Simulated scan of single mutants.
Amino acid sequence: MSNLSPLVSFLLGVAMAIACVFFYMSVDPWKRSVEISSWSKSGNSDSNVDGVNEAMFTHNSEVDHAQLAPKEMPQTKDLASLLKSAAMDDNTVILTEVNEAWATPNSLLDLFLESFRVGEHIEHLLDHLLIVAVDQKAFDRCNLVHSHCFLHKMGVNYSSEKVYMTKDYLEMMWSRNKFQQSILELGYNFLFTDVDIIWFRNPLRRIAITSHIAIASDFFVGDEDSLGNLPNAGLLYAKSCTKTVEFYKNWQLARERFPRKHEQHVFNKVKGEFAARFGVKIQFIDTAYCGGFCQLRNDLNKICTMHANCCVGLQRKLYDLRNIMEDWQKYKALTVEEKRKGDFHWRVPGKCIHAPRKHSTKGH
């Protein structure tokens, strides 16, 4: 019996120690478990153990997920990162904008991207293209087909086709204009292109190095410097500098002077005034190079881009742009001599031209 006394004493001692531990932890189990772990590791009561601080735990042992969750990066930083990866050596990026309706398979986005692949030596420009999606489905689709995509949520559902000059359409156009201003403020030049424009050659080669803003024309009067040209903001280049940023800021403010008008209409009204005030040189690009359905030019040896302007309706645009793409493929198959003769012409964009006109469709 005497031989068992030390063992019994030892077991009683262990039991009492365990009881004390459980009693101690019952006061605040999460806090005490951290402290006990700390004692076992460092021999003191420092409550920071392996980077876990007791402040991360509440007295009822619930985790504060708001404190633990990683902070979301501001949208501007995400944009800056994308711009840096997409920019050319001179800090120029190509921009386009899509919603769900334009980004679905076999819609405008697919046709737009394909045009870079069948154009003349412009496929590499896709590396410098940033596609701005205005809704989640457009963003998801973009990520399937392109490497540089940015989700620009505007607080309004822009996923469906927006009818020309409706309230949602106007808000989308002005939001786009504000976004372009932010690109300039981040220090990047941009060439914005509507997604209903197909590319054949590089239009940047037609923009003068002295131009602060270069814009396509619905109707070109023969002089790139003439304020008499009717502009089309669907193809728009802007150089990042103080002059253009101020131009854009005041362009936004001028919206109040012309209520219920889109940004292109306002640009046309203030172009001369703002060019003089801010010292901005505006170039209007010849429709022989950056053409459209408003003023269809037929020299395929010069054409860089073709815009489905003066046309309302997604299906009409798709039909006529597909015909334009087919015509381009036929032109490419011609011999050098046949191309030089210049006898080949576009088919008339019949769906757009013969569409009913309930209101002005210039530029869209």
Rank of each mutant, 00 (worst) to 15 (best):
D168A: 14
K41D: 04
E35H: 09
S217W: 03
M306N: 04
P70Q: 05
K269Y: 11
A288F: 06
R257P: 00
F179A: 03
D78M: 10
N99T: 07
L204I: 05
Q136W: 11
A138G: 05
M325H: 09
S37P: 00
T96P: 03
H354I: 06
A138V: 02
M173S: 05
S61D: 13
T335L: 05
D78W: 07
S160P: 10
K362V: 13
E171F: 12
L130H: 00
A15H: 10
V163D: 04
R340D: 13
A80F: 03
L314D: 02
H128N: 15
S175K: 11
S226G: 09
G13N: 12
S40N: 07
L184G: 03
A55C: 13
A66C: 12
Q315H: 11
F274K: 01
A103N: 07
A333R: 05
I215T: 10
W199N: 08
Y158E: 14
S107L: 02
W174D: 02
P105E: 06
E273D: 12
D299R: 02
Y237L: 07
D28E: 13
T193P: 00
R176F: 00
V195S: 05
K178A: 14
L144P: 01
T335F: 02
R255E: 13
M172F: 13
K362Q: 15
L129R: 00
L83G: 01
P356C: 05
L82W: 00
E123S: 14
G313K: 04
E263H: 03
I215H: 01
M165R: 15
L129F: 05
S360D: 15
R32T: 08
I36L: 15
A214R: 00
N202K: 09
P259D: 01
P231I: 02
Y169R: 00
Q252V: 14
S2R: 13
K271L: 10
A15P: 00
G291T: 06
P231S: 08
R206T: 09
K351V: 09
F219E: 11
D127E: 15
P349H: 08
D168C: 01
D50T: 06
I94V: 08
L7A: 11
S45E: 06
N60E: 15
C149L: 03
D127F: 07
S40F: 14
G155N: 03
E62V: 13
Y164H: 13
D286Q: 03
S360P: 04
F284P: 02
V118K: 06
M1Y: 12
A355I: 06
N60H: 15
V312W: 09
P356G: 07
D225W: 15
R316T: 13
Q315N: 14
I207S: 05
N44C: 12
A355N: 13
W346D: 00
T92I: 08
A254T: 04
W346N: 01
K41Q: 14
D343G: 13
D28A: 11
F150D: 01
F192Y: 15
A355P: 07
L230V: 14
Q181H: 11
D78H: 10
S182D: 09
L296V: 12
N106G: 08
A55F: 10
V93M: 03
A275Y: 01
T244P: 09
E35Y: 11
F267N: 05
G342F: 02
L68H: 07
S61V: 07
